[in-house]
């Protein structure tokens, strides 16, 4: 196996995992699980962008897209779960 073939196999593994993570995030009906998968997707995306020689963007995606976006969505998932569990109870922190 030449080096370029190996590299293409490596690219293939990266991309198949990326698409699988995206599909899993999109298809998961449970909010918290979907958000976790989305965070994993964002981090994997950052890895791929580092491979495509875009380290600046990879850093930003890992910190902003996956990190802060994920934190915001997790908070929303928590609210959604609590609201679904007890629709008319007084909200407690």
């Amino acid at each position: 196996m030449s080096q370029s073939t190996l590299l293409i196999v490596f690219d293939g593994v990266l991309l198949v995992t990326l698409l699988a993570l995206a599909a899993a995030a999109v298809l998961s009906p449970e909010p918290r699980r979907a958000v976790m998968l989305f965070i994993a997707f964002g981090l994997w995306l950052a890895l791929i962008w580092a491979r495509l020689q875009a380290p600046d963007v990879a850093l930003a995606e890992a910190a902003i897209g996956a990190g802060l976006g994920g934190a915001l969505m997790l908070a929303a998932a928590r609210r959604a779960a609590r609201s679904a569990a007890s629709p008319d109870r007084e909200r407690q922190p």
């Binding site: 380290p55 600046d56 990879a58 930003a60 910190a63 902003i64 802060l68 934190a71």
Partner: peptide, 25 residues
Amino acid sequence: YLLWVGGYAPGGAFQAGALLGAAGV
């Protein structure tokens, strides 16, 4: 560090701001 290093290496205001924002979170 990221803010300063952004002049000549990967980094810059967005990444630095994101890290500080994460500290706030």
